[in-house]
Computed example of a mutant assay.
Amino acid sequence: MAIAQPALPKAKVAPWNDPVIRGWFFQIVVIGAVTLLAWYLVSNTLDNLHRQKIATGFDYLGREAGFEIGDTMIPYSPADTYARAIFVGMLNTLRVAILGIILATILGTLIGIGRLSPNWLLSRICEWYVEAFRNVPLLLWLFLFYKVISEAFPGPRQAISLLWDTIFLSNRGLYFPVPFAHDVHSWMGLGLLVGIAVAWSISRWAKARQAATGQPFPTIWAGIGAIIGLPLLIWLFGGAPLDFSVPHIKGFNFEGGTVIQPEFTALLLGLVVYTSAFIAEIVRSGILALHKGQSEAAYSLGLSRSQATRLVLLPQALRVIVPPMTSQYLNITKNSSLAIAIGYPDLVASVNVTINQTGQAVENVLIIMAAYLTVSLSISLFMNWYNRRIALKER
């Protein structure tokens, strides 16, 4: 029969030697020190602003802005408020950032795959592309692209006419027709969203069907049909309106239609080619991280090089590619603030004009910081979710 051993008395430890108590103590001290420092900086800043008779607060956002914005996604006039002017600049930043992320991902992936091509000329061209664009500062590329675009094309009166005098290319931008506003357009937008949801559902159903039966399904064509077909059917049932606003020269510029301005083109082009060079190296390293047996197994099954890359290598390389790709997406968003150097009216440009007119620099800088922080955290959250979704599930 086992005899229970008496429990040893617990050694007494002085409070200052207890690691738990000591850890809580130092954390409280650090938090208190940071809070005091923040309180000192804020109170000192407010006192200095009050002494210099500079207004504080965000009441100015409701006042009339009084300045033009050359490129807008929503209606805007100088009679609108500072808040709307800043919102217009934020939309311009989001537009170039989202398009830049999409185009840089596509181009960078193609360049990265091209660097691994057995074709010597193609791989050397891709290598030169990467080395040229990633080793020169982005700001210099923006200056170069803007200068080329603004000087390579003629003025509006001598604009290059395309497609039966409906599209015009000049140093003011690319002018092209747009349909007049119609009630059916909002329904077409709703149909587009429904089509995207249907395409996503078809993709999930096709994957489950193939896993269960081994039979493939033309997911891509079905998705394209849903995304394009639904808005097209709505347009047909809505009377198929074909009234367009066509650009035409009037005075020293064009009227009608819409325009892609050279500042936007130069900024988007600079962000895409610069960031795609980094993405290309990420894609190349992700594919090289895979064991060569993966490609050999794909070739032994009779897959072509493009099929092996698309169906075998890239899906596995995503687990290596996604984390560093997140950093490049954040860089595109933050580097878009260089737009002010070539005159594109982004968030920073709108806020700079607001600072010059109101003198409230602290509040406006906080708005810029909060906007970029929100966008960057949103991108990070989405990419982290996607990274967890494609990660290997451990038992």
Rank of each mutant, 00 (worst) to 15 (best):
Y40L: 13
L116P: 07
L192P: 05
I125Q: 03
A104S: 15
L301C: 06
G225R: 03
G100T: 00
R310L: 09
A240K: 13
V20Q: 14
L366Q: 07
A370N: 05
S300D: 01
G155M: 06
G114I: 01
L142A: 03
I86H: 02
A55N: 06
Y129L: 09
I282V: 14
A370R: 08
T81K: 09
S380G: 13
S336H: 01
P218A: 05
L392M: 13
N356W: 08
F87V: 09
G293E: 01
R209T: 09
N92R: 01
Q215I: 13
F237A: 06
N135I: 00
I202P: 04
I86F: 12
V351R: 03
P241N: 07
A206W: 07
I220P: 02
D80G: 04
V322K: 08
L142D: 00
E131F: 03
A2P: 15
G293H: 01
S336F: 00
A7F: 09
G70T: 07
T258F: 11
W200I: 11
I227M: 15
A97I: 01
S295N: 06
D346T: 01
W235M: 11
A79C: 05
L110I: 15
L49K: 12
I321E: 03
E68N: 13
S378C: 13
L142R: 00
A199T: 02
L190M: 12
A206D: 12
G189C: 10
I31D: 04
L230F: 01
G195N: 04
Y344M: 05
A341M: 14
V194M: 13
L192E: 04
P324K: 00
L330C: 03
G195I: 04
L190G: 11
D71L: 10
W120H: 10
F176W: 11
L301I: 02
G191E: 02
G23V: 08
G195H: 02
D18N: 15
S300V: 02
P247L: 11
Y146L: 10
P179H: 10
L268S: 08
E281S: 11
N48W: 04
E363K: 03
A349L: 14
N48K: 14
W235N: 13
A391W: 10
I287M: 09
P154V: 10
L162P: 07
I86P: 01
A317K: 10
I106Q: 11
V198L: 15
L138V: 00
W187F: 12
A349Y: 04
P137W: 00
H248P: 08
I21V: 14
N335L: 03
F143Y: 00
I196M: 14
S203M: 13
G112N: 07
H50E: 14
P6H: 08
A297E: 00
P154A: 09
I282K: 04
H185D: 12
L192N: 07
I234P: 12
S276V: 09
G302N: 06
L61T: 04
R310C: 02
T72E: 08
R395Q: 12
I227T: 11
P247I: 05
M383T: 02
Y329I: 04
Y129K: 10
M383L: 08
W141S: 00
G173M: 10
E64N: 06
Q357Y: 02
S245P: 05
H291E: 06
L242W: 10
R305K: 12
R115V: 09
H182M: 06
L99S: 05
R63T: 14
L122T: 04
